[in-house]
Design a binder for these strands. Sequence first.
DNA 1: GTCGATCCTCAAGTGCGCTTGAGGGCAACC
DNA 2: GGTTGCCCTCAAGCGCACTTGAGGATCGAC
Lengths: 129, 129
Amino acid sequence: MRTYSIGQVAGRSGLAVSALRYYDELGLLGEVPRRAGARQFPGTIFRRLALIRAAREAGFTLAEIKELLDQRPADNVRQQWEALAARKLPELDALIDRLSRLRENVANCLACGCLSLTNCVMLQSHQGA
Amino acid sequence: MRTYSIGQVAGRSGLAVSALRYYDELGLLGEVPRRAGARQFPGTIFRRLALIRAAREAGFTLAEIKELLDQRPADNVRQQWEALAARKLPELDALIDRLSRLRENVANCLACGCLSLTNCVMLQSHQGA
DNA sequence: GTCGATCCTCAAGTGCGCTTGAGGGCAACC
DNA sequence: GGTTGCCCTCAAGCGCACTTGAGGATCGAC
């Protein structure tokens, strides 16, 4: 079974060597065998890293991802994932909504020159109590 | 002309006292008069803070906001703002797009139980070279 | 005149996800 | 056997936007 050095994994995955070591330190990469001290990653590392990246981009923290990955396959991985995803979906939705509104406001301000400070949407909608 | 203590400004604006002092330190609040050492904010501070908040939420850094606010009113504030907004709009759009796609993927994964690891969109679209 | 609330400064700490640097090792190639 | 290249650990640093803590001043009320 072919294995990969940390440099090779970095090259293929696009992650920095330091990031991989950091993930390993956090325990995100599972058991990583060593030969003469050097890490020897199995081919399955790429799928794992892809999952980590996808989860990161979806807004999960590394701690949450670890929590997820720590489940043994036999355990309730799926339930865990569903729980995390279900928790994150509304957050994602809210974020997208908020950003969309802001985008509108920024565009409006571009049009109105809101720093003239008279009737800008952004200013009005955020006025303190 | 009524003035406000830092605590009052914090209360009204929802910002922490420490954050206000931090903004002041960065020069975001302009000239703030003092009496016996204590800051005495004019009523206009709330509008200014609202602008700062709006800009922050739109993704501007405090440094960018300072750059913007440092322009004297007579200067090209409007040009500056337009430049910043124009620079930020595409970033906002890209971010919104990315998040929307992720939202879809997370929703799909929720449906497919992607951690069974066979044919998940998220995994496939992020597979390394 | 002293208590408590509020204010001040300055330095250091926090959280997250890494990166950087110092100091060192092993393995292969020439 | 020396050089190159990749690997290692451990500790510290970074960026951003703050927060926290130590140590101290000032004010009004009682």
